[in-house]
Amino acid sequence: MIAIDLCTFDTKTDVKSPAAYAAVVVDCVEASWNNGADLVLLPEFAWVGLVPLVEPRTLQRAAEVFWNEVLPALKSLLTRPGKAVVLGTVPFWDAERQELRNRAPILLEDRVLHQDKLHLTPWESDFSPGTELHLWEFAGLRFAVVICLDIEIPEISTRLRGSAVDVLLVPSATETVLGVERVGRCASARAVELGCAVGVCHLTGKTEVELIDVNVGRTAVYWPSQMSFRDAPRWQESSLIEEGIHKQRLMIDRKHLQVMRRMPLETNPSLLKNMPAFELVRDDPGQESGLGFRLM
């Protein structure tokens, strides 16, 4: 059994320095670990709250401070056997390509991993998209971090088919209930399609940073709709949250996933193999059937 804490996070903290901001994050993570969590997930753009604390107040400068000054301290403070944390996302300056990335740092015991956001919203014009989706192992489970808009892209689910991914972690930042709904409804679909658990958390609060000036969200858990999960809630969503740090505990028993994958006679899209290829065909305008699909 593995325990995961999904945490909302409010960047409007009463601190005066990057080190003090980092201390707020460390306190949040350690409180979850000390309360039995094995892994903690923080939301997208959790570290953009550094922008008002650095000079000049730019994403690139916040990136430099985080990766050069804050992360080494975090690694020292948050290295603990059997524990992991996805630290939300942070701007990352790729000096070789001269590009800014929206990157999720992952502290996995004594290792540092990362995941870049692959699909960007129109207001992330300062960023460039990532090119790789990473799978990683922790506590006997296979994880992927799928950042906000990425969970809404069905092609990512297609690429993950057959990967035996057990858990998708979705750090998000949305400014309206419509964005919250898009992330949640698509996260639920990914749980069904891939036969995995999906955990979501959102940024909250109002800030002086234009990129994340208003944020609302929730924490949510989604499971496959399969027989081995029949006796427990298959989706759990908190109420809409506008500010503050709130946590939801996700408990994963790998046995339920293993049992599900041993039931090939159950209708389960995640177990389908040899998917037929098809092309989109437009029928003649005079025919009533409109658009159809032809198997190839």
Rank of each mutant, 00 (worst) to 15 (best):
S172V: 07
L135Y: 12
S239L: 14
E132V: 12
V48F: 04
M260I: 01
W67I: 01
F229H: 09
E137F: 08
S225H: 02
I4W: 01
C196T: 02
Q287Y: 09
L272P: 09
L74H: 09
G88I: 01
A144Q: 04
R190W: 12
L211Q: 12
K247A: 14
R97H: 12
T8H: 08
R101T: 03
C7L: 14
G130V: 05
T13L: 00
R294A: 12
A31L: 03
G199N: 05
R80S: 14
P171R: 13
G82Q: 12
A164N: 14
W123Q: 05
V40N: 11
L271Y: 00
R185M: 04
Y21E: 05
L39G: 04
R159T: 08
A46P: 02
K273M: 11
L53K: 02
V145L: 06
H114S: 13
K255G: 02
A187K: 11
A95C: 09
V29F: 00
K12T: 07
H202G: 11
F92N: 11
V40K: 07
T13Y: 00
W47A: 14
V198F: 09
F229I: 12
V214A: 10
E266Y: 05
R185V: 03
D253H: 11
G217P: 11
P52Y: 01
E124I: 11
R103C: 05
R111H: 15
V165R: 04
C196H: 02
A37G: 10
M227I: 06
G286Q: 08
V29Q: 01
E152N: 04
V146E: 00
V15Q: 04
N68D: 13
P18S: 00
D213P: 03
L78M: 13
Q258P: 01
G292A: 04
N68A: 13
D10F: 09
T58I: 03
L265R: 01
D126M: 10
I241D: 12
E243C: 12
L271E: 02
A31D: 10
D27C: 08
E152I: 01
V90W: 09
T267R: 11
D14T: 00
R282K: 11
T58Q: 07
H119W: 06
G195W: 02
V90P: 02
P105R: 10
H134E: 06
G130E: 06
R185I: 03
W136T: 03
C196W: 01
T131I: 10
E193F: 07
Q287D: 14
H256Q: 15
W33R: 10
A144C: 11
R161N: 05
E237S: 04
T219Q: 08
E96V: 12
V86K: 06
L108N: 03
A189M: 09
L113P: 03
C196M: 06
C186S: 15
E99L: 07
E266F: 04
T204L: 06
K255V: 08
V200K: 05
L50E: 02
G49P: 00
L203R: 09
I147V: 15
I212T: 15
F278D: 11
